[in-house]
Design a protein around this nucleic acid. Sequence first.
DNA 1: AAGTGTCTGGGTCAATTGACCCATACGACT
DNA 2: AGTCGTATGGGTCAATTGACCCAGACACTT
Lengths: 212, 212
Amino acid sequence: MPPATRRSPARRAPVVRKPLADRREDLVEAALRVLVRDGVAAATTRAIVAEAGASLSAFHYCFDSREELLVLAAERITDRTVDHVREGFSADGDLRTVVVGALTALWERLEADPHRELIGYELSHHARHRPELRPAVARLFRHYLDVHEQFLADGAAAAGFTWTTPVPVLARLINSTLDGLALTWLVDRDGEAAREVIGALADALLAAARPA
Amino acid sequence: MPPATRRSPARRAPVVRKPLADRREDLVEAALRVLVRDGVAAATTRAIVAEAGASLSAFHYCFDSREELLVLAAERITDRTVDHVREGFSADGDLRTVVVGALTALWERLEADPHRELIGYELSHHARHRPELRPAVARLFRHYLDVHEQFLADGAAAAGFTWTTPVPVLARLINSTLDGLALTWLVDRDGEAAREVIGALADALLAAARPA
DNA sequence: AAGTGTCTGGGTCAATTGACCCATACGACT
DNA sequence: AGTCGTATGGGTCAATTGACCCAGACACTT
């Protein structure tokens, strides 16, 4: 009589085996997709492993907890921000052209995929009760501000202007307005109104520029 | 022998009985407090009834579902917005004084109790998966814009100016910037930076005003 | 080909949550 | 004082979720 614990040796579907690092990568990417598509509340471990095509055990083999994965996902978002913001930035033309063009590009990206950019805010709400998430969220926010500051500095340098208002203040103004605008747009979907606000924001920035 | 279903007639703590309308009111207010203090995710039926000092049955006696309560809470927030925004608004002095004063008052209120003003955004995230919540959230957002439009119209009238940019656009700019600013502030708690942005926003508004 | 450590399947477990039910106690009205 | 509709207490129930465990399958190395 075979040991009672022995399973039936029935043939099973071929199993995909991956090194730990690859599986972790899959799970982080899957988490990101679920976060963007369905939000933080829906990003349960089961939803994430389903998205990744992995099993629950694979998840617990790769990570100690769900929070650990979320932290990595937040950091991944941070890493990618630079590319996203730089995309569509052109330093050709006068200051107005550069500013309006860059802000419009930023907004169009937001409008095309608002949830992607807004996970940060959902994560920040979530971090209210998950202290371990706070550092990652703080880095994410700081990163956005840094990128906007860089954009302001590059734009002014390219067009031969200087800012009469401190660049960090302008960066925070841009960041806040775009985020608030996106939040409101998600509710009322009034893209035209949003674009007009972008125009007003551009005017505000231009009023704070003068020839170097 | 007494019926098996009969409970022991042991003395109980005095019971507070309230008419349905009062109990509903208690629950809505309790829900609001929990929402502000702990966020949407923590606003479970149990947390709400505990806050209200009611029982789970009382909850189900008063409402068909948790969503129904949340909708009422969202509407309650809407009703109160007017008072909050009007508070601290003064039409005395020139346009700069009025604008800076009003924006500062708005910001101070936000900084003093950020969660109160930001429930709307948490609710809007939540509404992504709860369609029945969407109308209430839409009303809430619309209401904020209306109030800011009113504020702009009143301020201009009081100081004898007109706006060169459409008032709805300016209202959306104010609304977006304040909300985005609050979101960022919640993460980095940099109040000084926020105030400087408020100043920049005031400059932007003043640049869109001219004598009537 | 045996050995060894890594990876996976398929469960379990306790906690939480929204919803719900029924018998009973209350109290306004008659 | 009796009646009747309303409010309440204290449970139950199924579903979901994060965490976890164990035996076995696999792929290297030697």
